Computed example of a mutant assay.
Amino acid sequence: MQHELRVTLGAMKNVTVTMEDHVADWARMEAARRNTSVSRLVGEMLAEKMRHDDAYERALQDWLHRERSWVSDGRAYPGREVL
């Protein structure tokens, strides 16, 4: 007799993902290595990608909108040997 226990923390959505056979084989092996499901593995990978992209975008926006404390007078920057 099989039993299934499902615990959902927060709202989750089911999606269908299409991938090449060799990618699916890798995902199954990687999920087994991590003792998780392919679904959970893909969800975690996408969440990590989202966090990375969000952090990059925030850092870029911070840099673009920071107060500039330097102003160029038009001269060339000093070379490495001078610095």
Results as ranks from 00 to 15, higher is better:
Met1Gln: 07
Met1Ile: 13
Gln2Leu: 13
Gln2Tyr: 08
Gln2Ser: 14
His3Ile: 09
Leu5Tyr: 15
Leu5Met: 14
Leu5Phe: 15
Arg6Tyr: 14
Arg6Phe: 15
Arg6Met: 07
Arg6Lys: 14
Arg6Trp: 12
Arg6Val: 15
Val7Trp: 09
Val7Ala: 07
Val7Gly: 04
Val7Asp: 05
Met12Ile: 14
Met12Lys: 14
Asn14Gly: 07
Asn14His: 14
Val15Phe: 15
Val15Ser: 13
Thr16Ser: 15
Thr16Glu: 10
Val17Glu: 02
Val17Phe: 10
Val17Thr: 05
Thr18Glu: 09
Met19Ala: 14
Glu20Phe: 13
Glu20Ile: 05
Asp21Lys: 13
His22Phe: 11
Val23Thr: 09
Val23Glu: 08
Val23Tyr: 01
Ala24His: 12
Asp25Asn: 11
Asp25Phe: 05
Ala27Pro: 03
Ala27His: 00
Ala27Tyr: 01
Met29Ala: 13
Glu30Ser: 10
Ala31Gln: 07
Ala32His: 10
Ala32Tyr: 02
Ala32Asn: 07
Arg33Gly: 04
Asn35Phe: 04
Asn35Lys: 12
Thr36Asn: 04
Ser37Tyr: 04
Val38Ala: 02
Val38Tyr: 01
Ser39Ile: 01
Arg40Gly: 02
Arg40Tyr: 01
Leu41Arg: 02
Leu41Glu: 00
Val42Arg: 05
Val42Glu: 00
Gly43Thr: 06
Gly43Met: 02
Glu44Phe: 01
Met45Ser: 10
Glu48Gly: 02
Glu48Ala: 11
Lys49Leu: 03
Lys49Met: 09
Met50Ile: 09
Met50Asp: 06
Met50Tyr: 10
Arg51Leu: 04
His52Trp: 05
His52Phe: 12
Asp53Gly: 00
Asp53Ile: 01
Asp54Trp: 02
Ala55Met: 04
Ala55Thr: 09
Ala55Phe: 02
Tyr56Ser: 03
Tyr56Asp: 00
Glu57Ala: 12
Glu57Phe: 02
Glu57Ser: 10
Arg58Glu: 08
Arg58Lys: 12
Arg58Pro: 06
Arg58Ala: 05
Ala59Ser: 14
Leu60Pro: 00
Leu60Ile: 10
Gln61Leu: 12
Gln61Gly: 06
Asp62Gln: 13
Trp63Lys: 06
Trp63Pro: 00
His65Arg: 12
His65Val: 07
Arg66Ala: 12
Glu67Leu: 06
Glu67Thr: 13
Glu67Tyr: 07
Glu67Ala: 08
Arg68Thr: 06
Ser69Phe: 09
Val71Ile: 15
Ser72Gly: 00
Asp73Thr: 10
Asp73Lys: 01
Gly74Cys: 01
Gly74Glu: 07
Arg75Phe: 02
Arg75Ile: 05
Tyr77Asp: 08
Tyr77Pro: 04
Tyr77Met: 11
Tyr77Phe: 12
Pro78Arg: 04
Gly79Glu: 08
Gly79Thr: 10
Arg80Tyr: 11
Glu81Val: 07
Val82His: 14
Leu83Ala: 09
Leu83Thr: 11
